[in-house]
């Protein structure tokens, strides 16, 4: 029996890797439908976007790179779908250098999907260095940092940017962010210029921002793939995030099972007493 418990703490890492692979592949092949509850923090973001009058502007600063694309892309797509459905005019910045091209591609993809026109329904401002300074200067005038858009077009020649000066002219700032820049939007943006701010962040970052939610500095959080899945559910357009959550469910369960096996083995094999 002791040998059995010893084996529990000596599972080969290749076995773990294989099981993780299977737990990712199998849910992709087999259709699983798991119930998904929408959390209040995600619902608040959705409702705030819904409450914006048709035709109003929304600023979506996107700051992420390809490494977190699996989490952030479905989030951005769900938000954009809702905005376009509501006929909101979307202004996007990308203050993280390695995400600039990725976000441009995603914007064009969603515009193609929903039949939106550049300059009329959405504008991509692109990248400028030093995010904190850019956020502060945008509070005075977007043109201070972005005299031209990503393609070099002067902002005033874009129909949807006419009369848009600074944060006062957007109904909501909703940053889709996987960087420390999220705090810049809270500290230098929201605190200085007092605009409604919501954030979409990666799952590991989520826990860091609940305190800002409680103080009312942000109106809501979309945390990670789960948040994106909830958003897809709210806009009634299930896509990659909901599919991804099924995979994540199995992988999380598998990791928990491994942790439990490791602990059972640790205590019953005598390793615990020896270490003590």
């Amino acid at each position: 029996m002791k040998k059995f418990f010893d084996r529990l703490i000596l599972i080969d890492r290749r076995v773990i890797f294989l099981l993780i692979s299977l737990s990712v592949i199998v849910p992709l092949l087999v259709k699983i439908e798991l119930p998904l509850e929408v959390t209040p923090e995600v619902r608040r973001v959705f409702e705030l976007v819904e409450s914006l009058p048709d035709g109003s502007r929304i600023l979506i600063p996107c700051e992420y790179a390809p490494d977190v694309m699996a989490e952030m892309e479905p989030m951005l797509y769900a938000i954009l779908r809702q905005c376009y459905r509501k006929n909101l005019k979307v202004i996007v910045t990308a203050l993280y250098p390695t995400g600039v091209n990725l976000i441009e591609k995603e914007l064009r993809y969603m515009a193609d999907q929903t039949g939106r026109k550049y300059g009329e329904d959405y504008t991509y401002l692109g990248y400028r260095p030093y995010p904190a300074a850019v956020i502060l200067s945008m509070g005075q005038d977007f043109r201070q940092s972005f005299a031209v858009d990503f393609y070099g077009t002067p902002l005033d020649s874009l129909p949807m940017m006419k009369g848009v000066k600074n944060y006062k002219d957007v109904g909501l700032v909703l940053t889709v962010n996987a960087t420390g820049g999220t705090e810049y939007w809270i500290i230098y943006g929201r605190e200085r210029y007092n605009f409604p701010l919501a954030i979409g962040v990666t799952a590991v970052m989520g826990a860091d921002y609940y305190n800002y939610l409680k103080t009312g500095q942000i109106v809501g959080i979309i945390p990670g793939l789960k948040g994106a899945a909830e958003y897809e559910k709210l806009i009634d357009h299930p896509e990659d995030a909901i599919r991804g959550m099924n995979i994540q469910s199995i992988v999380h369960l598998l990791i928990v099972v491994f942790v439990l096996i490791g602990n059972v083995g640790f205590f019953l094999s005598g390793q615990y007493r020896r270490k003590k």
Binding site: L34, P35, K226, M245, N246, Q248, H252, L253, V256
Partner: peptide, 15 residues
């Protein structure tokens, strides 16, 4: 950690 890992995925709610 175990509760948060399971509590943040739909399967955790089911079980």
């Amino acid at each position: 950690a175990v509760i948060v890992m399971l509590g943040r995925v739909p399967l955790g709610d089911v079980i």
